[in-house]
Design a protein around this nucleic acid. Structure first.
Lengths: 142, 142
DNA sequence: AAAGGTATTGCAAATCATTCTCATTTAGAT
DNA sequence: ATCTAAATGAGAATGATTTGCAATACCTTT
């Protein structure tokens, strides 16, 4: 168990925290909602209540272990902070999330912020669209 | 009253809708939450319930009159659709919102979406930072 | 290895933003 | 002026997330 990971950021290595960290590390989809994590715990036989999942995820966020995203639809998704910043493309049909980085865009953003008298501390760029894949239930609506 | 505005997009010109449209048009801050609109109505002496505000704003969104944004913090903000797409810079201290457009970024986004096999339908680019202005209560925290 | 103090958990209830139900009212057509 | 479908008002319902508090588990001290 990587209880060291937790202590390193000043968090006690408790069972719920270790379990949730492990799930975030091993799950196929990097981007999980609190509900997703909760269900993954259940599937693993751990009856950790949803409230604890939220609490732990928020602690992880504060500690810099995870990043919280507010994609469309009101619910938050969390991903382990790999240290490398990136932006996202979200499929509105199947919910698939892809990551990308574009240095030109990054550079432009900084310039724009400066021009407007802002000291930028963070940014969020999310492209929403429809992915062209067989396994995507391309909705006919819209 | 611009009841024509509403009929043009296929909405009956009802009192609540006219009032809310008027508020969106005349308010100093272009970006208002449902709660903001609700309070503005109250201040004007109209006791339109919050539920109606939400309903009307959602109808306006569907009709293309307003755009809904999901900035940080879970709450949605609405702005009249001027027809010209733009992105946002939000000050984390005073909440001020500025708008900008950058053609280079726009073009890059399309390219990235295509490269990833996505047909882009929308995007959201929000820069979060701290603005350097006297009237901004530059918090000492962080 | 056992004890103690404090952070953390579990549970249930609370909160927040937003949506829905349904009876009543109203805009706009006849 | 009348009628009908659509819209509103009021309050309850919902879904996501947070919080209060008593019970429990870490980690340090002995």
């Amino acid at each position: 168990m990587d209880s060291g990971e937790l202590k390193k950021v000043g968090l006690k290595a408790t069972l719920p925290r270790l379990r949730i960290l492990s799930i975030l590390e091993h799950h196929t989809d990097d981007h999980m909602s609190a509900e997703d994590v909760y269900r993954a715990l259940m599937d693993a036989g751990d009856e950790t209540p949803l409230a604890t999942v939220y609490r732990v995820l928020t602690q992880f966020e504060k500690a810099g272990l995870v990043i919280r995203h507010n994609f469309e639809g009101g619910r938050s998704v969390f991903e382990l902070d790999s240290g490398e910043h990136h932006d996202h493309i979200v499929c509105l049909d199947c919910g698939r999330v892809e990551e990308f980085i574009d240095d030109t865009i990054e550079a432009r953003q900084d310039r724009i912020a400066t021009q407007h008298g802002f000291e930028i501390s963070d940014h969020s760029l999310v492209l929403y669209g429809h992915c062209i894949r067989d396994d995507c239930p391309n909705r006919d609506d819209r």
